[in-house]
Design a protein around this nucleic acid. Sequence first.
DNA 1: GTCTATACGCCGATAGAC
DNA 2: GTCTATCGGCGTATAGAC
Lengths: 183, 183
Amino acid sequence: MIGAMARKPVAREAVLDAFESLLVEEGARAATLDAVAKRAGVSKGGLLYHFPNKEAMISVLLERMDRLVAADLEAMAAAPEGAAAYFIKSSLWTDTPLDRVFVAATRLAEVAHQETLHRFAAVQASWLELLASEVGPAMAKAVLYMGDGMYFNAMLARGPGRPPPEMGADVESLLAAVERLRG
Amino acid sequence: MIGAMARKPVAREAVLDAFESLLVEEGARAATLDAVAKRAGVSKGGLLYHFPNKEAMISVLLERMDRLVAADLEAMAAAPEGAAAYFIKSSLWTDTPLDRVFVAATRLAEVAHQETLHRFAAVQASWLELLASEVGPAMAKAVLYMGDGMYFNAMLARGPGRPPPEMGADVESLLAAVERLRG
DNA sequence: GTCTATACGCCGATAGAC
DNA sequence: GTCTATCGGCGTATAGAC
C-alpha cells in the first residue's frame, strides 16, 4: 500500500488521549477501563482490542512521555535564558502536551507503579545533569528540588476536577532565588 | 472508676498504627480494610467496631498528624540554627512519628482525598509563614519548595516495600543553598 | 474492528452469633 | 468487644457474536 505505512487506527489514539485526560483531571483511581472507553467513545471490548490490558495502555503512555521529554531537554539545553531559568519556568502547569503526559504519569507513580517510577528517575537524572553543567552539582540539586516542589504543590492544589492554581508569583520568587544561587 | 478516665482500647491504636504502616510502606491502594485488620491482628468486623467506616479511620489519622505538626512547628520556631535550616533538615525521612504520619497522609492526598488535601494546604501555610519571618516572603517560597521537592523525590524513590534512600548529600547541598539565599 | 454478555475477584460494609 | 458470614458494587479480563 503506497503511502500507507502501518497508520495507527484513530480509535487507538482516542483511547490513549482519554486515558491521559482522566488521569490528569480525576486521578488514577478514576481512570478505569469503563471510564476510559466511555470518554473515548468506544466500548470496553473495543478498547481491549487495541490494548490487550491496562498495563499495555500505561506502557504506550510512558513512551509518549519519553518522546516529549527528549524534545524538551533539547529546548532546555538551547534556551537563551539558561537551563535553570528554563527549568523553573517550565515547572509551571501550562497545559502543553508535555505537561499533560507528565501529570498523567505522576498520577500513576502515586499509586506506586514500578515501571513509571523507573522512568521518572531517569527523567530527573537527565534534568539534573543539564542543570549541573550550568550552576554546578550542588546548586543543581537546589534548583531541581525547587522546581519539583512547586510542581508537586500545584498538583496537590489542583486536585480532582479543579482547575490548575495560579502560581505566577511563585515562579517569580523562584527565578529570583535562582539568580542568587547562580551568583 | 477512679483513675480510669475513658482510656482508649489498645486494639484501636493498633489498628491506626497498622493503617499508617500500610500507607507508608505500600501505598493507599494496599491499605484495604482486610489488610489493615490482618496487620493489626484483628478481624475485619473487629476493626469496624472501632471505626464505623474507612473515612473515620482517615479522620483520626489526620488528627494525629495535626497534633504532631503543631509540636514540630514549636520546635522549628525555637531552633537555634534557624527555621529555614531546621525545615530543610526535617524534610529528610528519618522515621520519626511525624515523618510516618506525614508520609501516610501524603499517600492519601495522592489519591485525591479531599479532606487530606485541605489539611495539607493548612500545614504548608503555617510553614511558609514561619519561614517568611526568617528569610522574607520571596525566599521563603524557595526554601519551602526545595524541602518539598526533596521530600517528594525521597518518597518516589522509596516506592512500595523499598527502604528510604540515602539523601544526606542532598541535605548538605540544600543547606548551602539556603545560606546563599539568606545572605 | 468493534460490540454485548458474562465470569471472577476484591473491596467496603452490614447482620448477627458469641 | 470481637468474631464469622455474607451482600452489593465495581474493576479487569475473556468469549464469542456481528
